[in-house]
Every structure is written in structure tokens, then in C-alpha cells.
Design a protein around this nucleic acid. Sequence first.
DNA 1: CGTACTTTTGAATCGCATCAAATCTGGTGG
DNA 2: CCACCAGATTTGATGCGATTCAAAAGTACG
Lengths: 212, 212
Amino acid sequence: MGDAHTVLAAVPRRLADCTRQRRLKRGQALFRIDDRPQHIFFVLSGELRLIRTASSGAEIVLHRSRCGFFAEASLDAETYHCDGIATSDSDVLDFPLRGFRAALEDDSGFSHAFRQHLAREVIKLRARSERLSLKTAAERVVHFVETEGRDGIVALPYSKKAWAADLGLTHEALYRALGKMEQAGMISIEGSNSVEVSIVADPRKSFDTDNA
Amino acid sequence: MGDAHTVLAAVPRRLADCTRQRRLKRGQALFRIDDRPQHIFFVLSGELRLIRTASSGAEIVLHRSRCGFFAEASLDAETYHCDGIATSDSDVLDFPLRGFRAALEDDSGFSHAFRQHLAREVIKLRARSERLSLKTAAERVVHFVETEGRDGIVALPYSKKAWAADLGLTHEALYRALGKMEQAGMISIEGSNSVEVSIVADPRKSFDTDNA
DNA sequence: CGTACTTTTGAATCGCATCAAATCTGGTGG
DNA sequence: CCACCAGATTTGATGCGATTCAAAAGTACG
């Protein structure tokens, strides 16, 4: 859940004044492929997706967003190259594209902040890609904690079920992996919803203590 | 393999004039954690990695780059939060950080181009993350083709072995998947090094024609 | 021609997905 | 307060697909 006021406070006044908040129904389209972009979006709650429908009919998901800017690509595109769909009831901010571009041109502070936002996003996504190319659940957990946490400790911003999806695992696989890791003394978990995970031992060692 | 001239041509004269090309030996460090950033890098050939060493001693890979900007994070950071290591003999461009920042401030065209570069990177990485969260090799292949290609056809910029790594698979798994898919009439492959893959049928249908 | 690399196939194993079901949890309304 | 519900959490059993180890065949290049 993002907060509209916080977001708008980080944006030049002139731009903030002409952005609107909107509520989307599940299944509703923000835009369709080949449409001319009119807005940049910011997801406050719910879920938005970028979807391309393959020639074979398969739906290709390019991006899922539950919080943050959405469809930044439209900044420099003449037309959309995919559909933008709300897959849950969602709250969205609509930044007029014209105003957004103008703000980037005129306001060097905003331009800098937005570039910083993009750079951070790149960093995070690269780490996530590396993480998803790890083969086992345990490795991904360790990678997540070492990457997103501090000193081997991380507070989860969401449920373990949502965490599992983020790690590219089923929730069952994650629960089992966490159980084994905790039992092996590799990690310790506290709390229920907001969980603290701290890495104690090396994932490569001492992970086969029990296999009964 | 990137070309230094092409890269430098896309950069303001003043910045280009003070960047240097360097050759790195396998294992050589570009920078260490807590160093103060002095340069932004561009990988021309070889491979560079961002690596964080976990408290447990495990090496966490945050990013691998074989071509393109490297360590853009240093643009806005006081110190590095990980190590930058060449994992193969590599050719690298060193952009002085000061000059790079100045160019972004002064040259609105360059600022725009760099923001565009970051935005594209974000798009690509999000698609890659979605792809890596798909469970089967066949789904990832289809996703790749539909995402990176045009009209269901894609020319691979690298060997199938490298493609497998990009898809988060072992090369054996990819070869087998491609074989099955081709035999099932889902795709067709031409050429050896630069391969064209075109999706013919839906991955969900007609994929169990043979299981002998 | 020989070396290094990619491509390909085989067999065995392991871990995750899947389906199923039970328990626990927080929150709602009676 | 308690019954109840929706969701998260946990455990079990089974099968599949990818990994792994191994090795052969093909290919590029000096």
C-alpha cells in the first residue's frame, strides 16, 4: 500500500496539481497495445500487469506491480507495446505524461530523483534476477537476506506466502525450506507476519544433518 | 563485445575526452566495498561482477555484466556496497564520475539518453524476472522469444549455452527442451550460432506427443 | 592435426510442484 | 464473548522436470 500524499510530495507542485487518483476494477484495462500513452501510473494498492498476448494465444507477463511507478516505458514511446491490466481492484495515480516530461526537463532536482529511482530499480532487479537463477530454495533465501537485509537480518514487508512468490517458489517449498534451515541452525525466524530472518551458518555447510 | 568508439560517440565530447580504456586480468578488482567511487564503467568484453561476501562467507552475486554500463549505482552513492570484480580478462571503459555527473547536469540530451537507457534496462530486467519465475524450460523459451523477438522470431546474440545461462537453466536442460519443442512442432530453429526461433504452436497444447 | 569449445544424448538423482488436507490466525458479526 | 470465515501456515504423499555426472560427437581455429 502506497500513500498518495507521500508520492505527490516528492513531485513538483505543478505536476502534482494535475495528477489524479483513480480506482480500477479487477480486469479493467489502463491501456491497450498500440494506444498512445497519455499517463504514467503509480500503483498505490492492488496489482497491475503488463501483458503481451503471444501469436499462439499465450499470455506473456512482462511485469507485475503492487506498488510503485508503472509503465515508465511510455516516457519515451510513441505507442504501448503491451496491455496494461489491473488484475485486482486497484488504486492508481495518473501522472499526465506531458507534465511529467516537462517536470523532468525543467526541474533538475526531480530529474535527478527520478534517475536515482530508476537506477535503484535496476540494482534491485539485477539482484532479483541473479537470485531467481539460483537453483534451490535455501540458496534463494540466503541471497534474499544478504541482499535485502542488513548484517544478515531482514524484516519481511509481506507474508511468507507473498515472499514465496517473490522468490519464484510455491509457498509450500518455502515453508519447508525455512523449516529445514531453522532446524539446521542456519537461520532463525521471529514473529509471524513481519518476520526477521538472520543467517547463522553457511548454506553450503551443515545442511544435511538430518534426512530421516 | 562492445565497441569503444560507438559508446564514446554517444557521450558529450568533454566527457569522452577524459575517459580511458583499460584491460583487466581475470580476478582483478575494479573496486572494493567501502571504496569511494571514482568511475562509472562500461564493459566492452569479458565479464564483470558485483559481489557481496556474506557474513557466512558465501559469495552473493548481485550482477553479472558482459556488455554495458557497470556499477551505475555509484552515481549516487558515497561508497560502494559490494566488490566489483573481473571474472574474465576484460576490456573496460572508465568514465570519471565527476565528469559523468557534470554531463548529466549540463547536457539535457545526454541526461535524457541516460534516463532512457535506465528505463529500458528496467523493462528488460522486469521481463527477465518474470521469465525466471516460470517453472519449465519450455515456458521460459516461449517467454523469451515473445519478449525479445519480433512476431515470434528471435535472433540469438549468443551461443545456446550462454542462452541457457540467461534463462536460468543448465545447457543440457535447454538442449533437451528445444529438441522436444522442435519435434512437437512448437518452434523451428535455423542456423548454429545465431539461431532463429519461431513459435508455431501454443506451448500448453500438443506438447505431449511423445514420451517414449 | 590438435585443442578448446559447443552441442548432443544417456542415466540416475534430487528438489520442487502439485494436490490434498489439517491447523492456526486475525478479523467479523451475531 | 463466541461462532464463524477467509486467509495464512504447516505437513504429507506423489510425480515430474531439472540438475548432475558422464561421455560422445560436432565445430571453430590456430
